[in-house]
Amino acid sequence: MDAQDLSGFPLRLEGDAVPMVSFRKVTKSYGSLVVLDSLDLDVAEGEMVSVIGPSGSGKTTVLRMLMTLETINGGVIYVDGEPLTHMPRGDRLVPADSRHLRRIRAKIGMCFQQFNLFPHMTALENCMEGPVHVLGLSKKEARERSEELLAMVGMTEKRDQHPSRLSGGQQQRVAIARAMAMRPKVMLFDEVTSALDPEVIGEVTNVIRKLVAEHNLTMLMVTHQMGFAKDISDRVCFFYGGRIEEQGTPDALFGHPKRERTQQFLSAVREAI
């Protein structure tokens, strides 16, 4: 991480409405390619935010930084009021060490486009791994929790199957159960339906709808399914060239986009359907 002046960034966020996730002037670059340019984005507790935009606009990068799969080059990310990428030392912020990362990361869960289930474990074992070995639950507790979640995603019958025996839609539902078993406060979805056949997309989006309805989760979802984003989101962010070009309620952004690039993107997407 580049040496930077962090004196303007608070050690923690305080006050009435502390956002669950807060990106503050976050910059990410690969070599000379600036992928995200001083991004500011707050997500309130319980809010569902969809991220849309053209390929390469930095959508995945936003989620990966929050999951600590990428380091950042500038700015600070806060989760639940505490810095994620940094930690307080004395009266200033320094880059987070691995202990700090592990503590804050525990509040975040993520589902990937390619599912990334552990192929040598059954569906149930995939779900139990984290609760037993990270959260320290007993096998029995972890099993109960996992079975409940597998039931929620409709995978009870397949719980003893390995991923190679499951369809893409089934694997993704197990992956959602696995992430939920860690009881995260924030869930990240990166194009979780993009690798699926059209006829099984519904079984995954229905699970996400259920999560929105039944849990007080904060969610950030990258998607190319505009209809789904419109239905389910509290807010939609349109990314363009590593910046938020426009954001607003689904009705506003899809119904009356203000910016020309948003209009162009949305009409191009509509034509493609």
Binding site: L69, R102, F112, F118, E129, G130, R178
Partner: peptide, 15 residues
């Protein structure tokens, strides 16, 4: 071993 396996392990906070 695919990179996604490491990332899944990180996302579950495994040591």
């Amino acid at each position: 071993v695919p990179k996604g396996q490491w990332e899944a392990a990180t996302s579950l906070n495994l040591s």
